[in-house]
Structure formats: structure tokens, C-alpha cells
């Protein structure tokens, strides 16, 4: 299992959990922190996955 997939999966899971916590947060501070953290982690996970896809496409010569 490539290391990057594990990283993407970890970021994804962490971001998902944080965003789910934002749905049930009680105070504006909890809400802001969970939503911001979750969004950043989830976006990072997607970015890492996208990077893997692009790198594989480059390796297969799809951009040459």
C-alpha cells in the first residue's frame, strides 16, 4: 500500500471526524475550530490523493 494513500486516508478520516463534530458542537468556539480543522484536513487529504493521481498519470506518459 503506497505511503501516500495511507496519508490521504488518514487526513480524510481525521477531517471527516472533525467535520462531523462541527455538526454537534455546542459553542461557537467548538464550532469554528472543528469546522476549520476539518475543512483543512479533508482538503489536504483530497490534495494528496489528487497528487498521487497526477504523478501516476505523468509516470504513464499521459502529459507528454
Amino acid at each position: 500500500m503506497p505511503r501516500l494513500i495511507k496519508l490521504a486516508a488518514t487526513l480524510n478520516i481525521a477531517g471527516t471526524i472533525s467535520l462531523v463534530l462541527s455538526l454537534i458542537s455546542n459553542t461557537p468556539l467548538q464550532f469554528s475550530l472543528t469546522m476549520t480543522t476539518g475543512f483543512i484536513l479533508l482538503a489536504s487529504g483530497v490534495a494528496v490523493w489528487l497528487w498521487m493521481v497526477v504523478m501516476e498519470a505523468v509516470k504513464k506518459g499521459m502529459f507528454s
Partner: peptide, 25 residues
């Protein structure tokens, strides 16, 4: 499976949560 779980779903689900949260505030 990677495409769906690490790409497509997080994008749409994440946007859905953010839009819902911004309506709550």
C-alpha cells in the same frame, strides 16, 4: 474505491457539511 472514497465523496460531502454549518450560524 480510492477515486470514490478519497476524491469524489470528500469533496461533495465536505461542501455539504460546510454549507449546512454556514446556514446554522
Amino acid at each position: 474505491v480510492s477515486l470514490f472514497t478519497l476524491g469524489v465523496f470528500p469533496i461533495f460531502w465536505g461542501l455539504g457539511v460546510v454549507v449546512h454549518d454556514l446556514k446554522q450560524v
